[in-house]
Amino acid sequence: MQIQVKCNCGDGKCPEWAIIELQGVVESQLAISDQINGLEIGHLCCSSLSSSSQLSYIFTVGYHELSGTKVQLKKPLLVLKKKAAVDAAGPEFPASSATELEVIGIIRQKILFKTRPKALISRAQAKKLS
């Protein structure tokens, strides 16, 4: 069965997305178990410090600093958006599915953080309290 996807943007103009892959989980602090909306996870920076062609990325979450690399996916992924069927299209394809999928972006690469995070402890005091 063929699934038709609709792409509004032109050829080669699909917005590029990226995956961030972490070895681990991002958790909220105990005090704010529910209200995680609008909270900043961390900072992701790209740094080309290393002489090699690969860029290195540094991701800071909480008091951890993770460093990772950009990896090309073997198979690109599409980011789709499910939409309710538009009535206008109805008469043309009466038997077709009621929903349609719209391509939002295409993912060709991911940033992989697989190394052990580096702890960012500025002061001994902070450590003691936490």
Partner: peptide
């Protein structure tokens, strides 16, 4: 005072990362 600073610091990081050892 130190304690206050520490709390502020901590509060600036609502989300923390937990590394999975594997």
């Amino acid at each position: 005072a130190l304690q206050e600073v520490a709390t502020i610091e901590r509060d600036s990081r609502p989300l923390i990362f937990k590394y999975n050892e594997g």
